[in-house]
Write a protein that binds this DNA or RNA. Structure first.
Lengths: 238, 238
DNA sequence: ATCTGATATCTGTGATCACACTTGCATCAG
DNA sequence: CTGATGCAAGTGTGATCACAGATATCAGAT
């Protein structure tokens, strides 16, 4: 293809970039979404052929997708070669929370220093959406979960730490199934109430560029949500 | 299979667990080793068929392995669908170092509190091996790199944080190519001298269960090694 | 009723083929 | 010699097949 720049201005400039998406990638993202939103329960087994059939493709793309998910610990391959959503133990849950506090805490602190005005408006919008959905008579659990995630990640993205962002996504992918599955089954209003409060504090801290305060608000958000799950005693000890 | 426990004591107990390894896993580990030890240079392209041929298998296992590596950011798939070892930029390198300081620092501090006597002897042994190899007239770069890795990971493993350990491996996989490639091309003795010093301090701190001191020694190890690479100015800015 | 045994189905794994796209190289016009 | 053009080789992607191991089902014997 000859350099477009040399050509005289034409309708060509209005052409959109065409992104050939692979089926593999599509399957990966679909499964990922199902996992992160808790629509596949922990311990559930995944049969490659079933997934392929459900998505109307062959085995191949599913194999690639599952390999990627396995690398991220989002699913695990048992010694029998069957793949399943990992069962969350109490210890693993607590370790994941510890790591989240470190990584997400750091990103939040950095975000407070680096966030652009655009970042802040975006975060503000998402916070408003989340609050609005939360205050509805019958909030949609799925939408709440998604908005909560988008709010958090908008903050992390403002830190301009792409590698950390990627790692955090991996963490959410691991925690998502149990967290959201639990939230989905019994919609506990109370825990969300406090979530809104923490988000408000977090946003306020970001706006006055107070890194430590932002980190503190986030930490409380993470810890309280975790405590809620832990208090339910649904996680096996080992 | 009937429960073995019910059977009378026999030579059966001496049987080793048979691990049917998949070719996929083998390819994955081979590639991983090549990457982490810097035997594949950053920017180098990987052709699936070439890898398959080199390892004497078909495309399939290679595809699975590469999918896993891509999920860990150990290789990247370009828009053209070709896979290559990511080129390390200065910014990415610094971010990776920041994250390493957090994660590995934390694990080291925890390890100081939780390390068993067995852990400590293991770490001591690896430290001795590393020092011995280092003090040789013509140290083997590859072996040195491997021993350094084993020493570090023996420490992290003592923290009993499997999830963090996994993440740290991912980080080393990303840093490995540039770090070890550079160390391999020009064997700078000086930087290793200081590495031995930091390792000695680290070990001493662990033995007296001094978490903060252990973290400090590790941080200096990571920072100084990173500074060495950064000072070489081989990393593109963007 | 319980356990053992064989069988039929289902599982993931690996190889091979077909295809569309990209890249490299040689050819040819200027 | 320089440039573009066309063809050939090489690329990843996806589908299909073959196969060994696992799992479930059910018959028969104790």
């Amino acid at each position: 293809m000859p350099p477009v720049n040399g050509a005289p201005a034409s309708g060509l400039a209005s052409l959109e970039r065409i992104d050939r998406e692979t089926v593999s990638g599509r399957v990966y993202r679909d499964l990922r979404e199902l996992l992160i939103s808790g629509e596949i329960s922990p311990g559930e087994k995944l049969a490659l052929r079933s997934v392929a059939a459900a998505l109307g493709t062959s085995l191949m793309p599913v194999r690639d997708a599952v390999a990627r998910l396995a690398a991220e610990q989002a699913v695990e391959v048992m010694p029998n070669r069957t793949v399943r959503v990992p069962v969350m133990t109490r210890g693993r849950f607590e370790e994941l929370r510890t790591i989240r506090l470190m990584l997400e805490g750091h990103c939040t602190e950095v975000a407070a220093a680096h966030a652009t005005p655009q970042d802040l408006t975006r975060i503000r919008e998402l916070h408003a959406d989340f609050t609005a959905e939360h205050d509805m008579d019958d909030p949609d659990a799925g939408r709440l979960i998604r908005l909560n995630k988008e709010f958090h990640f908008a903050v992390y993205k403002a830190s301009r730490m792409p590698v950390a962002l990627q790692m955090i996504e991996g963490l959410w992918l691991q925690i998502g199934p149990v967290l959201n599955f639990d939230l989905r089954t019994k919609s506990e209003r109370l825990s969300r109430r406090v979530a809104v409060g923490h988000h408000t504090e977090l946003l306020a801290a970001l706006e006055r560029r107070d890194g430590p305060a932002a980190r503190k608000a986030l930490s409380e958000d993470i810890v309280s949500a975790g405590d809620f799950i832990l208090s339910r005693n649904v996680l096996p000890v080992t």
